[in-house]
Computed example of a mutant assay.
Amino acid sequence: MDLRAEILLEHSRAQSLRIAGWIGHRANRFAALIHLFLHDEYRVVQRSAWIVSLVAEKYPELLTPHLPAMVARMEEAGMPVAVKRNVLRILQYLVIPEPIQGPVMNSCFTFLEDPLETVAVKAFSMTVLANLAKDYPEIKNEIRLLIAEALENNPAPGIRSRARKVLKSIG
């Protein structure tokens, strides 16, 4: 299968599921998908993000070797929001390896502080930080302050809903 061509062929749930099924638990195919997700043009990045999420749900162990590159790419200036949004979406369901916890934490705090950041990126950042707060309870106060600021600056329903859940989870 020409993975890139198939991704560009059609943007639908059925197509994404078909490609995810073809990738399955094969590390080499997943690596090719990750390469497209991290390095291709916007439309390919956007469409491959959904497939990455689908495969990661079933086979989260395939992500492990790619997490450092995904986190590094997410931190780059000018990165398509689809990369940030989907990397964070995935990270909220994983136990983040210790070597990348610091960079992930820094990125999430930066995204929460940015008044121009999208609602989805802010919401996923809140959840990732709440998960990290289980190992780093000293960050809870900073999370609370940033959530209060986010609610003040952008009281979008997605921010309010996620903020309530995160505040409840961190106590």
Rank of each mutant, 00 (worst) to 15 (best):
D2P: 10
E10C: 12
A14L: 12
A20S: 12
G24K: 11
G24Q: 08
A27Q: 15
F30I: 11
A31K: 13
A32N: 00
I34N: 12
L38G: 09
H39V: 08
E41S: 03
R43E: 13
V44N: 05
V45E: 11
A56F: 12
E57V: 14
Y59I: 09
Y59Q: 12
P60Y: 14
L62N: 08
T64Q: 15
P65F: 05
H66T: 04
L67G: 01
P68E: 07
A69M: 05
A69N: 03
E76M: 05
P80L: 04
A82R: 00
K84V: 07
Q92E: 14
Y93L: 08
I96R: 03
P99Y: 08
I100W: 04
Q101C: 08
C108E: 08
F109N: 04
T110K: 14
F111G: 02
F111A: 12
E113K: 14
D114Y: 01
L116R: 15
E117N: 02
E117K: 06
V119T: 11
A120C: 05
A120W: 05
V121G: 01
S125C: 04
T127F: 00
V128M: 08
L129I: 04
L132D: 11
E138D: 15
E138N: 14
I143K: 10
L146M: 12
I147D: 06
P155S: 10
G158Y: 05
G158I: 04
S161E: 04
R162T: 13
